[in-house]
Amino acid sequence: MSDIAQFIGMLESGPEASDEFASYAKLLMEKYTSPETLFAARAAADAYIELKRSRERTAYLEVLLKDAESRSCENVYAARSVMIRQEKLAALGQLASGIAHELNNPIGFVAGNFEALKSYSISVWSYIEALEKAAGKEKAAGLRAKYKIDNILQDTKDIFTESADGFKRVTGIVNNLLAFARIDGGSFKTGSLNSSVQTTAAIVSGQAKFVAVIELILGDVPDFEFNAGEINQVLLNLILNSVQALKGQKRETAGRVTVRTWTEDGMAVCSVEDDGPGISAENMLRVFDPFFTTKPVGEGTGLGLNISYDIVAHRHKGAFDVESEPGRTLFTFRLPLGREV
């Protein structure tokens, strides 16, 4: 087990209260992290602290929502909007430690390559200085062999190539996270549903590793007006629910999550299908109910699908359907290409 994986395991056993956990995480970093893993360890600790704070805020907001029946419709909607943001933050917190681990690998070899470049540059400059003092080609050739200049020049080219690839991977991970997490302030803007699917699938890929293969079958869907931040949240809830259902089966081989997009009758359509355990008949009637969850205590608020339904059906004037049987679950949502909100 790697140092950072062991560190994350120790974080998971920490106290629930965010203030106590912050002190606990700080103590762990001082005792058990090395300089090479400090960046990833700090990112993971910050993610867990934010997740615990989000759970505390969510618990508080759950109490507010239960008392909201006596409030005006305007106040209820305001509380619900806050809950949407809190649920999104909690989901990001769960993913952040995995993303930090994914970042650690490319950053590690980039840092190692540039350390090698530093060492090589010293040898190159020593060679040049020696050449200035050398007389004759024969001695210069001897110095070239002594300092292994030919090997260094070839290795330098390879190192720059590897480093460029590493920076590209890091930039891609960060950009996908930022694209998913952007806050649109409730605005509807012209955008691409396929881009939202690709961004969200990339974000979930760290959680799906060794559990599920995420397959994207994207049709020719034109750009249209929708709230990208909210639809990203819907996609995250659906894909992550499928991955977690497959993970709960503890299968020997990876399952499959298939995300499709197409257009139909003036609607942009997206479906998320998995080959997991399915949803029981009694639970099918409650999947969109607030606070309903089959997950263990502390692993789900029961608000993900309820919020997703609200975003699609009420905010976007669309439709949401679910089908399930043993070995197959299919969620489908439809958004109007010509919006009237």
Score class of each variant (00 low, 15 high):
258 T>L: 04
258 T>P: 00
258 T>Q: 08
258 T>F: 00
259 V>L: 04
259 V>R: 04
259 V>Q: 00
259 V>A: 00
259 V>P: 03
260 R>M: 13
260 R>I: 07
260 R>P: 11
260 R>T: 14
261 T>K: 15
261 T>H: 07
261 T>M: 12
261 T>I: 04
261 T>G: 14
261 T>A: 06
261 T>V: 11
261 T>Y: 09
262 W>T: 12
262 W>R: 12
262 W>E: 15
262 W>D: 15
262 W>V: 12
263 T>Y: 01
263 T>A: 09
263 T>K: 07
263 T>R: 05
263 T>W: 10
263 T>C: 04
263 T>D: 08
263 T>F: 02
264 E>S: 09
264 E>P: 01
264 E>T: 04
264 E>W: 12
264 E>N: 13
265 D>Q: 10
265 D>W: 00
265 D>K: 05
265 D>L: 00
265 D>C: 00
265 D>H: 01
266 G>K: 12
266 G>Q: 06
266 G>C: 03
267 M>N: 06
267 M>A: 02
267 M>Q: 06
267 M>T: 09
267 M>H: 10
268 A>F: 10
268 A>L: 07
268 A>N: 02
268 A>V: 03
268 A>T: 10
269 V>R: 01
269 V>Q: 02
269 V>S: 08
269 V>I: 05
269 V>M: 09
269 V>D: 12
270 C>Y: 09
270 C>T: 14
271 S>Q: 15
271 S>V: 14
271 S>E: 14
271 S>F: 13
271 S>D: 13
272 V>K: 00
272 V>T: 08
272 V>L: 11
272 V>A: 08
272 V>M: 11
273 E>G: 09
273 E>I: 08
273 E>T: 15
273 E>Q: 05
273 E>Y: 06
274 D>V: 09
275 D>C: 15
275 D>H: 05
275 D>V: 04
275 D>F: 07
276 G>I: 00
276 G>N: 04
276 G>Q: 05
276 G>E: 04
276 G>A: 12
277 P>H: 08
277 P>M: 12
277 P>K: 13
277 P>D: 04
277 P>A: 07
277 P>R: 01
278 G>L: 11
278 G>N: 08
278 G>I: 07
279 I>P: 06
279 I>Y: 00
280 S>K: 06
280 S>G: 11
280 S>T: 03
280 S>H: 04
280 S>E: 15
281 A>K: 07
281 A>D: 10
282 E>A: 15
282 E>N: 14
282 E>F: 06
282 E>M: 12
282 E>D: 14
282 E>H: 11
283 N>R: 07
284 M>Y: 03
284 M>D: 11
284 M>C: 14
284 M>N: 10
284 M>I: 11
284 M>G: 14
284 M>E: 12
285 L>Y: 02
285 L>F: 06
285 L>W: 03
285 L>D: 13
285 L>G: 05
285 L>N: 11
285 L>H: 08
286 R>N: 05
286 R>A: 06
286 R>D: 03
287 V>C: 08
287 V>Q: 06
287 V>P: 02
287 V>N: 06
288 F>S: 11
288 F>C: 03
288 F>Q: 00
289 D>K: 02
289 D>R: 09
289 D>W: 05
289 D>T: 13
289 D>C: 08
289 D>G: 05
290 P>C: 10
291 F>H: 03
291 F>S: 11
291 F>D: 14
291 F>C: 06
291 F>P: 04
291 F>V: 10
292 F>D: 13
292 F>M: 03
292 F>E: 10
